[in-house]
Design a protein around this nucleic acid. Sequence first.
RNA 1: GGCGGUUUAGUCUAGUGGCCUAGGACGCGGCCCUCUCACGGCUGAAACCCGGGUUCGAUUCCCGGAUCCGCUACCA
Length: 504
Amino acid sequence: MNKVRVRFAPSPTGALHIGGVRTALYNYLFAKQHGGDLIFRIEDTDSHRFVPGAEDYILESFKWLGITFDEGVSFGGKYGPYRQSERKDIYKKYVQQLLDNDKAYIAFDTPEQLDAKRTETANFQYDASTRLQMTNSLTLSKDEVEKRIAAGEQYVVRFKIEPGEEVTVHDLIRGDVHINSSILDDKVLYKSVDNLPTYHLANIVDDHLMEVSHVIRGEEWLPSAPLHVLLYRAFGWEETMPQFAHLSLLLKPDGNGKLSKRDGDRLGFPVFPLEWHDPKTGEVSSGYRESGYLPEAVINFLALLGWNPGNDQEIMSMDELIKLFNLEKCSKSGAKFDYEKGKHFNHLYLQKKSDAELAVFVQQKLDERNISAAPQKIEMAVAAMKERATFTKDLWDLCSFFFIAPTEFNEKDVQKRWKEDTHRLLSELLPVLASIPNFDDAEATEETVKAWCEAKGYGLGNVMNPFRLTLVGEMKGPQMFQITKILGKTEVIKRLKFALETIH
RNA sequence: GGCGGUUUAGUCUAGUGGCCUAGGACGCGGCCCUCUCACGGCUGAAACCCGGGUUCGAUUCCCGGAUCCGCUACCA
């Protein structure tokens, strides 16, 4: 087999959709597994939909996710340029080749005329059955065609599809897919307005010239795959035609249809890897990174949406994914996007991080608030709380009480835990705590306090629950003597006294 | 409408002509742990789209239907 070369070729029309990320990921895994190359190509043949900044956004997204490219826009390589708008001359040459070989023809029908035709004739299709009724180089004389072009009239080049042919596309995921060429229309391959090809032509020419071996793309391309096969044939490139694999789509979590940006807004989760500021509308969309996701969790979660290793294993690093990935194990049906499971993965990956790595997120928040704290204390706080966190941003909400003493106390918890004798009990606890040299040994502190409770005949819950309230402000947090250890003796006594004065 | 694809619990999925009393994970319920909240452990409810056929036997193979998805642009 020739060298594996695959590509991810987005259109710079906005932020990178999470489904696109998955397609890129599968391409990446496939390339790495086979020691092949992954190419980054920009398909900007639609000048109207170009959005500035989109290209950089896409690049930055992959950088964050750890998906690397071997060649392409911003990476270089000997098959460039990799931006389709910079390949105009190349396409022009190949369009001419098709024209010369009678595989394509020039059409002058304006968009308005076509619209009129479509409303006039239901299910109108520009194909072998209708093209002789239209204004094109098949119905016009050669002179007339040249005259019109010379006069500056806009035209398109259409692919001349021969009807009645059974076209077979071999798909690595779905097997053979058959389609009759009669149902295909004479696709526009090139437009004179901007001297740019359409997707279909550019795609085939580039994949051929860049020696792409496998085309792994979304299912929305399956219906046009036969057209692409026909194009390879028309160029005489069928022998080296890449292999196809059409991936199932990512669907809305609820209801029907494919996952869209709107669904994320509506259901409250990001559909983009990074936060995106739309330069046209000024709209801001949330991103996985900014929402506190870890890239490795996003990768793992996405990899499993439409593919599985064939056993029960779910937690896989990028390296493991590269080893285990297999196109044949990709599912044929669309996967509803299960955001809850994504959260689960993030939680799992967050737990794998060291305390020091996670402490950074708390340190940031402390810096913002000009609070200084010993790194050791931050790490201890993180260690005590991280298992409760799903997102990196949860860490601060969870740990803040270690650094900011409560000034008010959760009303419901006070009602429930602050009883008649609580004030007396905690007042008595004060000297007991004061008698302990320091709280560094959590077990020793616990023993002393418990022994005191027992000696006095006080219920443990009656002491510990309100005690927690005084230190945390609410009924949350780790084991009490873990808290006292991290807070330190001075702070504990200070907080206890304050609560005693405040809660009545 | 036409064409193509698809179909295992609410969701992602495993799997097979008899090992299936259909496995795992998320989510949901319960119990345990416990000074709180979590985590964790245990546990429960929950699925082979429908109808024919082939077969001793079908969730698995075949046919038909339905479903959902996609495409049907001078967008990708």
